[in-house]
Design a protein around this nucleic acid. Structure first.
Lengths: 147, 147
DNA sequence: CTTGAAGCTATAGTTGCTAGAGACATTAGC
DNA sequence: GCTAATGTCTCTAGCAACTATAGCTTCAAG
């Protein structure tokens, strides 16, 4: 039994244009078409899309997912490759968490100092203007992206 | 004493094209120009750019920074506005942290189950394919962005 | 006075989608 | 069977927040 794109989108909790986008970048293969040129998907396609969605949820970039998919398409290679992709992701996630925790501390400090005065003595503005007021311990590094 | 764009970039630890970009989107005012049409910045501009950079480091979106800047340009209003911008930012950061912690747990679980086998029994692929294997407690919600 | 670095404008690319226009297909109600 | 309301099609453009390129001009050092 075949699904139209809207049903597939609903089943995988992905938006319709996102599916077409994944097809466009080659993450999903081109599906069958109905007589009226509409895309028709089968169960395998739903699985593949669920895989992609889940990996995206986990923060994997598209290119990593492409690698994972090519691994799972030919499942007789060693696991090491999939493993190392996941390890890289884990390290990245840990780094993001560390950075966000430092950031949270600084925001809380700002808010505590502000506590309802007027802008003339509002620390939010002041603290943002002077990086040297940051606690050295949680110093945010150069151009490392927050995400 | 005036700074050329390169010196300003160095002093604020922001890249040169980024400064021109900020000018283009109206976050920085158009600076004076030299006889040869090169941008010249003063100390006030450096302060403003430092403010922007720091706020970006803290994860404030550009529009929030625009609001904060307009507040600090007229510092006799109540602090509540700046305060609430920071509070929204804090809530956002906390949400990101929660999501990333759930994500980290799942990646660790995946890696523990994989532990050097072959893809035939590699859980990385399998877990990614089936969202229902996620621990219910940390279930990742719908379309909430990871970042 | 020359050469190489730094500056200028303008445009296009990045990532991962999302939104719109205008035309065709399908389905539900009557 | 017919009509109206969705759903789907392609194509293009837009979002954040920059980054990179091309081809030119200006400036500072030797």
């Amino acid at each position: 039994m075949m699904l139209t794109i809207g049903k597939l989108a609903g089943a995988a909790r992905v938006k319709v244009p996102t599916i077409r986008y994944y097809e466009q970048i080659g993450l999903l293969p081109q599906p069958e078409r109905s007589a009226g040129n509409q895309r028709l998907y089968d169960r395998a396609m739903l699985d593949r899309l669920a895989f992609i969605r889940h990996a995206r949820d986990l923060g994997f970039p598209i290119e990593a997912i492409r690698d994972l998919l090519s691994l799972s398409d030919g499942p007789d290679q060693p696991c090491a490759a999939a493993d190392s992709i996941a390890k890289i992701q884990l390290a990245d996630v840990e780094a993001r968490i560390a950075r966000l925790v430092a950031l949270k501390a600084e925001l809380e400090r700002m808010l505590a100092q502000c506590a309802g005065g007027c802008i003339a003595d509002c620390r939010v503005i002041e603290v943002l203007g002077d990086h040297s007021l940051c606690t050295g311990e949680h110093r945010l590094q150069d151009a490392a992206p927050v995400m």
